[in-house]
């Protein structure tokens, strides 16, 4: 299953998993597939306040670099330190071990603006609908 139904998605190809006020954020199967082998992830500092759709870091693959956007407003409370040693987790496990940051949401109502798995898949080119 490439796009878990319990997650919310952004048009910029991030996913978000909500647990109370805490949102875990990563990039989608499609995003990691389009990038190819991920070799570096630049993450924000802990405590940084992010606005919805603000750029919070980059993912670099061998071939290209891509900006990361935070789907919701909030404060960065955790970063996936494992990605510093094993950035390829974003390819091998985009929704689990390859998560990128956790944010304490300041306005959970913003979640209503995000896409469901079904709606997100409609934004993808045909070859990537699994």
């Amino acid at each position: 299953m490439s796009y878990p139904a319990e997650l919310k998605y952004s048009k910029e190809h991030e996913w978000i998993r909500v647990d109370g006020k805490v949102a875990t954020i990563g990039i989608t199967f499609h995003a990691q597939d389009a990038l190819g082998d991920v070799v570096y992830v630049e993450m924000p500092s802990l405590g940084k306040e992010l606005a919805a759709r603000q750029e919070f870091g980059v993912v670099e693959s061998v071939k290209s670099v891509s900006s990361l956007f935070c789907p919701v407003s909030g404060k960065v409370i955790e970063r996936n330190a494992e990605l510093e040693k094993r950035p390829e987790l974003i390819n091998s496990s985009p929704y689990e071990s390859g998560w990128i940051i956790k944010v304490e949401m300041s306005d959970p109502a913003e979640l209503n603006k995000l896409l469901s798995a079904a709606d997100y898949q409609k934004t993808l080119p045909p070859a990537h609908k699994h």
Partner: peptide
Amino acid sequence: PVSYPAGII
């Protein structure tokens, strides 16, 4: 072709 399923690395 930019890459195949094996990947660039």
